[in-house]
Simulated scan of single mutants.
Amino acid sequence: MGDQQEGMRKPQQARSQDSAAKVLDAALKILGSQGPSALTIAAVSKASGVSNGSIYHRFADRRNLLVAAQDHFLAQIEEAWLSRTAPVWAVDDHETLLSRLIAAFSEVFAENRLVFQAFMLSGYDDPNLRTRGAESTRWAAREFSALLAERFGTSPEAADTAYRILWGQAVSAALFADEEVTGVAVSEHTRQGHLLQALQAVLAT
Rank of each mutant, 00 (worst) to 15 (best):
M1C: 11
Q4S: 12
Q5W: 01
E6Q: 10
G7I: 04
K10D: 13
P11S: 06
P11W: 01
P11T: 05
P11K: 07
Q12T: 06
Q12G: 11
S16L: 02
S19I: 03
V23W: 10
V23C: 03
L24Q: 04
D25W: 15
A26I: 00
A26F: 10
A27P: 09
K29F: 11
I30R: 03
G32P: 12
S33P: 08
Q34K: 05
Q34A: 02
G35T: 01
S37I: 03
A38V: 00
T40Y: 05
A42K: 07
A43W: 00
V44I: 11
S45Q: 07
I55Y: 01
Y56E: 04
H57W: 13
H57Q: 01
F59A: 07
D61S: 10
L65M: 12
A69Y: 04
H72Y: 11
L74G: 00
A75S: 12
Q76V: 13
E78C: 09
E79I: 08
E79H: 13
W81N: 08
W81S: 08
V88R: 07
V88F: 01
V88L: 05
V88I: 09
A90L: 07
A103C: 05
F105G: 07
E107G: 00
V108F: 00
V108M: 13
A110E: 04
R113Q: 01
L114P: 02
Q117N: 12
Q117A: 12
A118F: 07
A118C: 04
M120L: 11
L121M: 12
S122R: 08
S122N: 08
D125S: 15
D126C: 07
P127H: 03
L129H: 08
L129Q: 02
R130F: 10
R132H: 12
A134W: 15
E135I: 06
W139G: 12
W139D: 09
A141D: 10
E143F: 00
F144C: 11
L147F: 13
E150G: 00
E150R: 11
F152A: 13
S155V: 10
P156H: 04
E157I: 09
T161Y: 04
Y163R: 02
R164E: 03
L166W: 06
W167H: 04
A177D: 09
E179A: 13
E180N: 14
T182L: 14
V184I: 15
R191D: 09
Q192Y: 13
H194R: 12
L199M: 14
L199S: 14
Q200I: 01
V202K: 03
A204S: 15
T205S: 11
